[in-house]
Amino acid sequence: MKKLIVLIVVLMLVGPSIGLLSVATLMNPAAISCGSGSLAVGSVPDSLTAQTRDGRSITLNKNQLTHAATIATVGAQTPGVGREGALVALMAALTESTLRMLANTSAYPESGNYQNDGLGSDHDSLGLFQMRSVSGWGTVAELMDPDYQARAFFGGLSGPNAGSPRGLLDIPGWQLLDPGQAAQAVEVSAYPDRYQNFQPVAESILAALTRPQSASAASFDQIVPETSQVAFPLPDGTYTKTDTFGMRTDPYSGESKFHAGSDLAAPAGTPILAVADGIVSFAGQRGTYGGLIVVDHTVGGERVASYYAHMYDAGILVAEGDSVAAGQHIGDVGSAGKSTGPHLHLEIHPGGVDQPAVNAEQWLAEHRAAGVAGAAVTTAGCTPERAV
């Protein structure tokens, strides 16, 4: 215990240079091991068409989407996976098999006796994730079972292989990796860069099949009143713009990657303000976002979702289902999740949480967001209590 206290003091003195770890994380290790929240898998559509990152259109049939639902369901049942882990698994299965259960009769004639979606020919690989029996992933019978393959891919304490070979949960800090890198860490492919191309498709699949269980069910159906105004998410004079929406050089990998938000650097503890009146649909830890608040709004008659990321647990001041006002103090700037220092990562999703993000700074400018001096706008009856 004395060592832990000393380590906490050191981290507090070092401050923003540590970036990725918080005192809250050290006191609660589960905060870093959990994924992005649980998943509720709904009905499977007959087909889905989406585009890969390089612009290629891909259409998945109901059978392929059923396999995707199996992966998401296993992810929902496996502690620590969450939406982020399910996304990684779908990217891997899309890349390896296009979400098809592939037999391999040239290597294992008996594999053709099991239900399958066709034949593969990559050495002696089998199934959705093209796993190899000789590498210890499982028997032929096991690897021809989609549920087993999903459990093997996720691994962890409930996985069938006890960490050898490693599943996603057996990789320390997988939540801090790019999803494509996390997929590669499990698959150990000779072509490590190909998984990233399928991230938009995987995201479309999750949007079609699932929604976060922890989001207030009412927020998806109830009418969110039109906002009275639009506010800037940080007080005037407290922030510096450090990264914008669009392609950028990733600060971790050095690679050119798409950035869905706008980054506003500010001292830790700076008040984060709601950009509009709305209802909180998520408040908690979510993978690389760290502490995340999602608020649903109606702006100009359109449903809009705003995302505020990288808070520590103690910096989340609202709970799911809360009504908030434009300019209300809803959280404090932190550096949890995939972060190199205290800042607010802001995303704006016109159409709602399942729709693509747009340039947040441009959206705020177009809606004439009012700057807020000092800590926050005070609104009668809307003072949030600190989350516990």
Rank of each mutant, 00 (worst) to 15 (best):
P29V: 10
A30Q: 12
C34S: 12
G37N: 04
S38W: 01
L39I: 12
L39R: 14
G42W: 14
G42Y: 15
S43H: 11
S43K: 09
D46Y: 07
S47C: 07
T49V: 10
A50D: 01
Q51V: 12
R53K: 12
D54M: 07
R56E: 10
N61P: 05
N61F: 00
K62N: 10
K62L: 10
K62G: 07
N63C: 11
Q64F: 06
Q64Y: 07
L65R: 13
T66W: 02
T66I: 01
H67T: 07
A69W: 03
A69H: 01
A69C: 03
T70L: 05
T70R: 00
T70F: 08
I71V: 15
A72E: 04
A72V: 01
G75N: 06
Q77F: 01
Q77W: 00
G80L: 03
V81G: 07
V81S: 03
V81N: 09
G82R: 06
G85V: 11
L87N: 15
V88I: 15
A89S: 08
L90E: 04
L90H: 06
L90D: 06
M91Y: 00
M91N: 09
M91K: 05
A93H: 06
A93R: 05
L94W: 06
T95N: 14
T95Q: 15
L99K: 02
R100T: 12
L102P: 01
L102N: 05
A103Y: 06
N104L: 15
